[in-house]
Amino acid sequence: MSAMQLFFGRRLLSCQSLRSPGRSLLLPLGFVVALFAAAPLLAEVPNAVAPTETYSGDQVEQPIEFPHDIHAKVNKINCMYCHTYARRSKVAGIPPTSKCMGCHTVIATDKPRIKKLTEYWEKGESPKWKKVHDLPDYVHFTHEKHLQRFIFDNKDMKVENASEVCAFCHGEIKDMTVAQKSRPLTMGFCRRCHEQNKGPFDCWKCHK
């Protein structure tokens, strides 16, 4: 690292992304290569242009190996059923353990993952999940605004298909077990989408 970088510390990151918005410097070296090769599944959201870039994030080990595919694909549970704050707040939220137990006191109680969950519940604890989709402190993304624009204010969009909108930034989570980052979530990624879908361009909309 050069002296310049040391002096300016972490802030240099943003300067870099200003020039090459494809990736963030702080990612561990092994994961810098963005996988443009994989053909992305394009969501069909009326009145929106979906981003096409992909990225391959870390495989993060979670306390319970939560199968998104069983919930969202097989059982067709809406994303917002569990991530219930997304429509009302800037954060989507991790579902409370009570929500899991709402079903799993009766469903699949013999499975090892559910047994583990029940253990947590009975101890009165919540699992410590690892954050997968994280943004730097100076980026103020809000789920509520995006859901409003692409789902609720979008007349041709059915709420049942919300996962198509979520997939813009989170990828095809419904095909994954443990969530994995599959979009770069860099400023360039955001910006191109804002350009195509006529989102706001003021820096202070997201940085403050």
Binding site: V60, P95, P96, W129, K131, H133
Partner: peptide, 17 residues
């Protein structure tokens, strides 16, 4: 001022919200 590396930060949910 933590980094944005995946899986380095923990999130704890409410037990009962």
């Amino acid at each position: 001022t933590v980094t944005l590396e995946e899986g380095k930060e923990e999130v704890v949910s409410y037990l009962v919200p």
